[in-house]
Design a protein around this nucleic acid. Sequence first.
DNA 1: CATACCGGTATCCTTTGGGAAACCGCTATC
DNA 2: GATAGCGGTTTCCCAAAGGATACCGGTATG
Lengths: 109, 109
Amino acid sequence: MRSVRDSLDLLGGKWKLPIIVGLSGGPQRFKQLQREVAGITAKMLSKELKELEINGLISRHVQADAAPVAVTYTLAAYGHTLFPVIEALHAWGQQHRAHIMHAGEAVAA
Amino acid sequence: MRSVRDSLDLLGGKWKLPIIVGLSGGPQRFKQLQREVAGITAKMLSKELKELEINGLISRHVQADAAPVAVTYTLAAYGHTLFPVIEALHAWGQQHRAHIMHAGEAVAA
DNA sequence: CATACCGGTATCCTTTGGGAAACCGCTATC
DNA sequence: GATAGCGGTTTCCCAAAGGATACCGGTATG
């Protein structure tokens, strides 16, 4: 219970988990990531990325040599430990969508 | 990704999951539950319980015959489908606490 | 030259989440 | 009669979350 709340403290809010999902397929550049995490503003993305980095879940790499200075964000090793959480959420969300589609029938409680 | 967000829509916020955890041990009366979910106010608990009930995750039972009208909240069958989610969150939170102790470096979000 | 992309930051604003405290009728207990 | 517990609701209020918009210097592209 306390541990559930600990997790929620780190991962709570509208965007943290979606961002991690967005990075779970591999490193992404800022704008790429913004497109992937549909609906997020640059301000929010920037802010959330900072917090995620502080907590060691992702890492930020700057390639200064590149022409327009590329920045990539990568899911850190510690971030990978969140996969079970994400998978559980993913599975439940999927199941829930199906559940809702079927709703409308007689529901015996 | 969309499914993760769906889950977050239903379960997001500070209290929904803690409340479900609080009910996972069996039915609880309102005040009992409030004591169990440490820190929650009656207003919040009342509001969150309504939303959880609307979404079919818990059910509310009134025993009007009893002396001071007992009300009990129970995790509905559908609420039980959240156990994998809760367990994942619980495990991660526990692990994270250990992780932080080990690193000797706690960073609050 | 104009436009667009990159990786953001700064400013302003609205919405919401959520806490504190008072109060409700009812009952049982001291 | 006073107090306490139950299951809440109501009101007031503040802080935080989050959205919209504009802007920055740099480069490449048409």
